[in-house]
Simulated scan of single mutants.
Amino acid sequence: MPSALITGITGQDGMYLAELLHGKGYEVHALIRGQNNPKRALIETGFPYVQLHNGDLTDMSSLMRALRDSQPDEVYNLGAISFVAYSWENAHVTSDVTGKGVLNVLEAVRLHAGDDPGSVRFYQASSSEMFGKVQQVPQDESTLLWPRSPYGVAKVFGHYMTINYRESYGMHASSGILFNHESPRRGPEFVTRKVSRAVARIHLGLQDEIVMGNLDAKRDWGFAGDYVEAMWRMLQQDEADDYVIATGETHSIEELLDAAFGHVGIDDWRPRVRQDPRFMRPAEVDLLIGDATKARERLGWQPTVSFRELVAMMVEADLAEQKQLAGL
């Protein structure tokens, strides 16, 4: 039975990846930060097959303990402070966790593997936010990185550090440059879940409007469940490499609103949406669209959930949740 260690288990990707690996017969281990982590009970109840290890990406000793106790064949580093807006408020913390945290995990894996650096396969969750001020449309693995947020800068550090450890030490270390991917498990602070939850509540008469930032920003949105399949496929390759994972389609925030409101039969949604400068980014990333040709050709991967199917899935999940919470 192969063994895997996941950091970031409490995020949507961590949960979908744990399910995928468990279904493939893996022994699944995960790093979780803090004895009183508010999501610990969710993981323990919803994913009873996951063996939890207390640790922190900023604490090397805890990473070494987790590796010693789990003896993984594969390590998936999904842990990060991943909310872009927060990174401007706390650039230092974001850099320590999302950037230097990658270095800590890489070094811990290198030391754990000892004389056989390729014996533990490593996955780094890179991000399309690294492209930032895009220099090429669509973006692929060779596109110049120009991050436009402290989060993006931290991800670039982790991305290049992963390449450096692969080239310097012969580690089987791959990075997935994942474009935006969403699901009903997405945190409510992210724009897609903010929209799906608000639309559900407006439809049920529980709130009147949704307050948004820039409606013109465009993203390449896919389903998180599809994207964790790509992560696993990367670590099954003989040679480690970097891959863009994306749908190749771009949609604006306005289209997101149109699809979400349309799903509940509200065609004229503009009176229910108010823009507020507080929700505008200091430096916006205007157009992200990925070219996943390499992943399709080498990994045999392709997305299975369309944009409108994804939005419908999220709105339906939030309708069910809000009905239950409101006792409807």
Rank of each mutant, 00 (worst) to 15 (best):
L5M: 09
G8N: 11
E27F: 05
A30N: 08
R33D: 07
N37P: 00
I43D: 08
G46R: 05
D59S: 10
S61N: 13
A66I: 05
A66N: 05
D69M: 10
S70G: 06
P72A: 03
A80D: 11
E89S: 14
T94L: 02
S95F: 09
T98L: 08
G99V: 04
V102W: 00
V105H: 02
H112P: 06
D116K: 11
V120R: 05
Q124L: 06
E129W: 08
F131I: 08
G132S: 09
G132E: 13
K133Y: 03
Q135L: 08
Q136H: 07
D140A: 03
R148M: 07
R166N: 02
Y169L: 10
H172M: 10
H172G: 06
S174R: 06
E189H: 13
V195F: 12
A198F: 06
H203L: 04
G213V: 05
K218S: 07
D220H: 00
W221G: 00
A224I: 10
E229V: 15
A230M: 12
M234W: 00
D238Q: 14
D241M: 12
Y243V: 04
T247P: 00
T250V: 08
T250D: 11
E255L: 02
D258Y: 07
A259R: 04
H263R: 11
D268R: 13
W269S: 05
R274D: 12
P277S: 15
M280V: 13
L287Y: 12
K294F: 08
R296V: 08
R298M: 13
W301F: 15
Q302S: 15
V305Y: 04
S306F: 02
S306N: 09
F307I: 06
V311R: 07
Q322G: 01
L325H: 01
